[in-house]
Write a protein that binds this DNA or RNA. Sequence first.
DNA 1: TACATTTTTGAATGATCACTCAAAAATTTG
DNA 2: CAAATTTTTGAGTGATCATTCAAAAATGTA
Lengths: 190, 190
Amino acid sequence: MARVQFDKSKVLESATHAFWRLGYTATSMQTLVAQTGLKPGSIYLAFGNKEGLFKESLDYYAEQSLANLEAMLAQYESIEEALPHILLALIEESSQSEYCSCFLVKSQLELSDEQAELKQHVSQRLRKVESLYFEGLLKNNSEAEASAKAASVMMHIFGIRVYGYHTNSKEQLMNGIRLGLPWLAWETLH
Amino acid sequence: MARVQFDKSKVLESATHAFWRLGYTATSMQTLVAQTGLKPGSIYLAFGNKEGLFKESLDYYAEQSLANLEAMLAQYESIEEALPHILLALIEESSQSEYCSCFLVKSQLELSDEQAELKQHVSQRLRKVESLYFEGLLKNNSEAEASAKAASVMMHIFGIRVYGYHTNSKEQLMNGIRLGLPWLAWETLH
DNA sequence: TACATTTTTGAATGATCACTCAAAAATTTG
DNA sequence: CAAATTTTTGAGTGATCATTCAAAAATGTA
């Protein structure tokens, strides 16, 4: 019956989906066994334990997010032009049914000091996103300006991730974002 | 041995602390028994079940937060003057050790669609906070302006709650907030 | 083909989960 | 004070938790 090595990215896809939707603690190994189609032993051989599978799921998600972000940034002349499209996409996403906020943000807030190592793992991925914005902003801004603007962008993204998870008002989110980020090139958003 | 009815607010104080720190799922009834000093039977008689205790803990926290917010607002002439102090306090809070973000924000993000009722319970308290800002902003703004500004304030607060949970940079947070909320009366901040 | 190695299988494990309930203690009622 | 009612006690419940491991199957190597 046993086939050769399972498709790791398919397994991570379904594990990520489960962890993202339910959270780390609320996702049981039994759920993961059901969702991935793997037997317990295979999961433990490949990932060590539940925490190992969670970490790899986080990385799987983070890599996809960063790649997606870099692709968006590459499409536009400047980050000031790209960000309105990026933020609009986040707002659109937040109005979908079964919206799960951001896996990284949810995980960051779920983990307590008792899981310090996991928490740091998540923080690192979030900082990577911020540094991507920071680097882009350095083109047209001083270091101090770029730093403040990157922080402002991150806070607005976190805002969308939380606000969009409980309210369902695209217009309200758009108005808030436009007001808080007036230095972006909103006019290119036709 | 049995004393008369336990001190409900003391019990809610410790239950809130546990739920806030660890999250709903990761806080076991055994932990709650240990933290509150109550025996399982007493908890179930008084609160029905774990979810009941969680709801009352949320209300306990939300009422304190709202009271605190109203007290801050009452201290200043306008909300534009009060908000810099309120936000500064949130930033200061985020740099403390054992910082747990915001109980409402954490709970909001932890709960999935399978706990729709609880999720709505949390959303309601968050909307109450926003409406408080909205009402205050109506004094000096049109309805549309007040609505957008309230959304912007909420997003910045969510931003502080998430950003402050993983980074430890008061200065970075302050710069981001000042940049995103330029219509506040920052000059009155000494 | 024969043997060694790797991978999968899935029932079983002890620990911990949310929760129960009959007995005991404290309080209220008459 | 005695009976009725309310509250507390805490050991015990079945369910579910993360994890294990010996046997079976598949693959690699000669």
